[in-house]
Nucleic acid binder design. Sequence first.
DNA 1: ATAGAGCGTCACAGATATTTCATAAATAAC
DNA 2: GTTATTTATGAAATATCTGTGACGCTCTAT
Lengths: 225, 225
Amino acid sequence: MEKIKILVVDDESRMRKLVRDFLVREDYEVLEAGDGEAALDIFYKEKNIALLILDVMMPKLNGWEVCREIRETSKVPIIMLTAKGDEEDELTGFDLGVDEYISKPFSPKILVARVGAILRRSGKTEEGNILSKGGIVIDKTARTVTVDGKQIDLSFKEFELLTYFLENEGIALSREKILNHVWNYDYFGDARTIDTHVKKLRAKIGEKGEYIKTIWGMGYKFEVE
Amino acid sequence: MEKIKILVVDDESRMRKLVRDFLVREDYEVLEAGDGEAALDIFYKEKNIALLILDVMMPKLNGWEVCREIRETSKVPIIMLTAKGDEEDELTGFDLGVDEYISKPFSPKILVARVGAILRRSGKTEEGNILSKGGIVIDKTARTVTVDGKQIDLSFKEFELLTYFLENEGIALSREKILNHVWNYDYFGDARTIDTHVKKLRAKIGEKGEYIKTIWGMGYKFEVE
DNA sequence: ATAGAGCGTCACAGATATTTCATAAATAAC
DNA sequence: GTTATTTATGAAATATCTGTGACGCTCTAT
């Protein structure tokens, strides 16, 4: 399973490093941003970020603004870091949909514990139903697919096919194999059918379509660069 | 609608009164217990408590013990009150499944804000009895449904179906799954039956009917967007 | 007995997906 | 370079699925 991604946003690199070190030790994958704008960039680009840790005081966009912007489109859990005892801030945060509020200075152990608690709560920890490779995210439970964060509509067969590809990343798949898995094993049709579906799939996932490679005389292979 | 019930457990009656006053002002119904045993008694007797606020230091059963006991059977949100800076305690709490941790002395406003945030997050106001998503509120106890505050009449099956949808928000449900859950496990009828009920349901909940999404070739999914 | 609500079934139209097909383009072998 | 084979592509043909209204059956209240 891929690691859970956490985005840490703070303008002090020392603080980011501190947080990162503790989170990495817990086997999370940590992304960093030094200001609010960078945070939004990364958030939208990565898209399967499980949690945000936001400092309030930041240049360009502050923590509240980032939070508000993100909440327009996402329910990703957010932890806010604020100066100690700033009660008004804390109240604002809850209105904006902040999930936790930790005041500086804080103990990294507490931070890690809260991160764990939040992820446990949001159910994002144990998921066998999310496949994510090269910016393509398949949520089998919700039956949705996003490419670089943007959701795309796939038909039934397209969904099955793409899932099959991602589940077999780096493995060359013969047409026969594909037919047996994505279609019924007793399917007796034109093997060209696969080509057509691959074509549509490539078109729908845009430039990432290149990840579905043709293996001449054999079949296809999904491979991220 | 019935008020949301919160159980406040603390051996100091002064503290209980303080918390209660603030919560009552927010229109919650507050129950009180002076020790851990009393807390468990009340929790099991009153079936629909939405949230527990537990002091750690108490006679008979302390907060952790109460928490552990409750977690055996229930996922009800729990807020713990502990002495300031007791970091070890806080860490223990998260392991036990505590949702929030507030150190004394605390500002009642913060308490109220966190209570609100937790209840919002848990999606339901009363444990198991009220489901609320996207302006659709199902009161399982009263067997009523309101859409944007306006009550609507649903037949038995429609009610069951809508409930099943809300309980599985964001999850793609195959017709088979729906049949197995909303109908009997041995039901072998026409799958079109579901369509018919979905149609009626959509019509009855008006524009919110769009939340019941069709997943072509697969089934349906309830999703607030 | 009758009317009405709830439920399941059905047929059909419209929507959507899937497959086939013809042809162009690409690739490998010679 | 030429030829044979394979793949890509667009369009057309088929197949499949969903939405919908109608109908009949059962149960209940009147």
